[in-house]
């Protein structure tokens, strides 16, 4: 365990990439939302939502991708096992998601207290996320962050092991799978059932439980790839 914690500290040696930049993105969202409102002339058009959260998700995924393609090979030469690195990555992902999730809850509270930044804007408290208590909201915000981090980690280890060929094949394979699943759902007329099933799920299940299961599956796949990855 001490070795794992040492690797956590190494991953956090350059903490701005994992914490600083995402927090900066968080702080930048309200003024960006204001800018969008101004450019759209929507300041007086009543309650509305602005979808800036994907910006945060993108920053997180790329940070973990870099961890796997740059920090992993460096530490492998310093005698760190893949197992220790994977465990440390899981801790960092979880810690980062919880911390940023807490930040999102704080901004959500501010957003509500200020009446949507004074102009009924929803950047954080999107309707789709539900309006549970702060603890539930914390988990709702953190779940997708873990899932997106897992995508970054998996993409990173695929690149580390098979380079561009691996990434191209992974993207092609994922798109092909999604298209096949979509086609199957369409031909079987499953979309209405899928829609009503997802619509009937509580936010905590939809944005915490499912993303965590998804992240666990990707994490398992990442571990299988990492086991034979080299520097």
């Amino acid at each position: 365990m001490p070795r794992v914690l040492d690797v956590v500290r190494i991953q956090l040696v350059h903490w701005p990439a994992l914490l600083g930049y995402p927090l900066l993105a968080l702080v930048a969202m309200p003024p960006l939302g204001w800018g969008i409102d101004v450019s759209n002339g929507e300041t007086a058009r009543g309650a509305h939502e602005i979808y800036l959260l994907p910006m945060l998700l993108g920053a997180i995924a790329s940070a973990h991708l870099q961890t796997m393609t740059q920090v992993f090979p460096f530490t492998l030469g310093l005698g760190v096992t893949r197992r220790a690195f994977a465990a440390a990555t899981a801790l960092v992902v979880l810690g980062q998601a919880l911390l940023l999730g807490l930040g999102l809850v704080a901004f959500d509270i501010v957003e509500r207290l200020t009446g949507g930044w004074g102009r009924e804007t929803r950047i954080f408290g999107l309707d789709v996320l539900g309006h549970g208590n702060p603890l539930a909201l914390w988990l709702v915000y953190s779940g997708p962050l873990v899932a997106v981090s897992a995508i970054g980690v998996l993409a990173g280890v695929v690149f580390q092991r098979w380079r561009h060929t691996g990434i191209y094949l992974a993207i092609f394979g994922s798109v092909a799978l999604l298209v096949a699943m979509g086609a199957l759902a369409k031909t079987q007329n499953w979309w209405p059932s899928i829609g009503s099933f997802l619509g009937g799920q509580p936010s905590l299940t939809l944005f915490t439980a499912y993303p965590l299961v998804f992240a666990l599956a990707l994490g398992g796949a990442a571990w299988l790839v990492l086991r034979r990855a080299t520097a």
């Binding site: 040696v13 350059h14 870099q66 740059q70 460096f74 030469g77 005698g79 520097a231």
Partner: peptide, 13 residues
């Protein structure tokens, strides 16, 4: 400890 030829380091380090 293994120091490789053309050892690569993380970009931000």
């Amino acid at each position: 400890c293994f120091i490789r030829e053309s050892q690569h380091y993380p970009d931000k380090f």
